[in-house]
Write a protein that binds this DNA or RNA. Structure first.
Lengths: 210, 210
DNA sequence: TTAACTTTTCCCCATTGGGGAAATAAGAAA
DNA sequence: TTTCTTATTTCCCCAATGGGGAAAAGTTAA
């Protein structure tokens, strides 16, 4: 049934206890109502059109389709629905895969009800709720290595190279000759101890020089 | 003077009023003490070794060196110091430039004292304080376009291509022939309406297909 | 069976990327 | 100043790459 003026929350969580706890909690918050509660993504997706959730609380480790694949599918079917991941995993693969899949938030399972409620509220206000460690991981993924062995020009050129540009177009972009680009790239290779574009880009990405 | 057991906060903000407000506030919080307060980065950097701040509250729009360049320099000189940007700017160039420069947090200037204090606390606990809009921007930067015209294999290949791999190495990575890679890339080009690697990568990045 | 895709294979060739090395310029040291 | 060292530019060389075209082989659907 559609309850007007309440935010419809859907729960996808295979652990019976956790699922029930979440669901009960949601139904006890005046502003919220439980749009549905599932133990796997497949069933949730089947009923998405009826449940019409505004927000989905999604586990990652699920039988069948995992929460990351599920998030992709759900965002394709219903782009306006926000998916908030609630999981015990704090490893970067899961975090970034979930965010790429379209998750709006990422919470770890140790949160209390108060935090959950404010996360939902934040989501409704257009925010992206994250637990502290996750926020830090996300921010860290932007921080460049402060002690790169490459100078500014070299970094610039390698960045362009990593964007798939040819020597020729790099030359045109930074107003130097193609040979000069080549010169810098040779220098970059010797600094990074590599001898091809591929390796240079790999090292630079890994070390966050670019 | 070094006050033990208090967290040393440094303020870099060129607006006299804002600077004073922040500085006074910090000195009124029992746990915190003002390590220094400057109107530009140059002076702050000059005294960094004496001030020894644990956290720097940094404006972006500053006379001389801006807060982003300043953050880079400071993180190079004192990597353990956390820089929290406090600014009116919410545009993505500034946000991502600041984060790449090494900022640990990014707050917009409308925060109240309570929020500032909890942001500092969060930073001390190893977190990354962000205001709501910023968190959303950061998360959005990961979200891939859900309706890419490319299928999974094409996306995979284009991703590898964008990482600087040659047809040959893509072929080896995904266990197909080089000609098959070529076939897919031709298809990608026709879907994206381009006719070179460079353009394809540009379009794919812009549209967040990869 | 035939028509219509999709995938694989092959040919062709200008451009590219990378190595080597000489010529030139610029800085630093004596 | 001259000299030595380092940085930059230029050029040669050539295998490999990237991209177009198109035929051949495989698949699917009527």
């Amino acid at each position: 049934m559609i309850t007007p003026n309440k935010t419809r929350i859907l729960v996808i969580e295979d652990n019976q206890t956790v699922n029930e706890t979440l669901s009960e909690y949601i139904n006890n918050v005046p502003k919220l109502c439980l749009a549905g509660s599932y133990f796997n993504c497949e069933d949730a997706i089947k009923n998405l059109k009826n449940d019409l959730p505004r927000i989905i609380l999604m586990d990652i480790d699920l039988p069948g389709m995992d929460g990351i694949e599920g998030t992709k599918k759900i965002k394709k079917l219903s782009p306006k629905t926000d998916v908030i991941i609630i999981t015990v995993f704090e490893n970067s693969e899961n975090v970034f895969a979930a965010l790429c899949a379209g998750a709006t938030g990422y919470l770890t399972k140790n949160i209390d009800n108060q935090e959950l409620e404010s996360s939902i509220e934040e989501c409704l206000q257009g925010g992206a709720p994250m637990s502290m460690k996750i926020a830090k991981m996300v921010i860290n993924s932007f921080n460049k290595n402060q002690k790169s062995p490459l100078n500014e020009r070299e970094t610039e050129i390698l960045t362009l190279l990593a964007q798939g540009k040819s020597y020729q177009s790099i030359a045109e972009l930074i107003f130097v000759s193609k040979d000069n680009v080549k010169y810098h790239i040779k220098k970059i290779y010797s600094i990074l101890q590599v001898d091809s574009k591929e390796e240079a880009i790999e090292v630079a990405n890994k070390q966050k020089y670019i």
